[in-house]
Amino acid sequence: MYAKALSGLIDKPRDAPASAEAESAPSDDILREWELVQRAQALEDSALASLYSTFYPRIYSYAFLHLGDVQTAEDLTSEVMLKVLESIKKYRFKGLPFSAWVFRIARNKLIDLHRRRKRRGEIDLTQPLATMQASPQVMAERALDRGQIQLALKHLTEEQRQVIVLKFVEGFDNASVARVLGRSEGAIKSLQHRALNSLRRIMSGGAR
């Protein structure tokens, strides 16, 4: 069972301080991750199991927040994980977390899916009809529930949604978000500001 094979892999980056993923020197976590990835490149069962059990839930959560549909998110996650496996030998460490590379694959798969849907003229099935109503005061101190965030994210632009999910839900630093989205770090800072502002307006019932 893959869960029992977990060993050595760093936990979610959201739990790691941002400074540990500084651009200049890779952190110990990233170096341990790189070691694990090398074992996975050699197709070691335990390393593959660690990668799978770590990234499957994260990619699923990421996919679900973008798609809002369990089955499609599951399908996309499985596609991403197979793609990761099939491409892992091509991965080269460049100072950023391996997870940024994995999420880049996930993001590309997501774009492919959107293209297919657009070609079919399909509208996002989960787009909500109404915004949520909550004052900034009320929303100040408690965690968002998943339904709330799901609804609010639908009102953001694709890039804003990506930044919110990658930076605040997945815990990536700006450099990694920039890598996943193929943008500069400066652009990520601006996007992050606009995204939070939009989200604030949406959640207080205002128009975007």
């Binding site: 839930p57 968002l144 965030i149 839900v169």
Partner: peptide, 16 residues
């Protein structure tokens, strides 16, 4: 904005 960011980071992930 900072409080909103904090709330986002506290949000539990969707579990498969």
């Amino acid at each position: 904005l900072l409080l909103l960011a904090r709330r986002l980071s506290l949000t539990p992930r969707h579990q498969p």
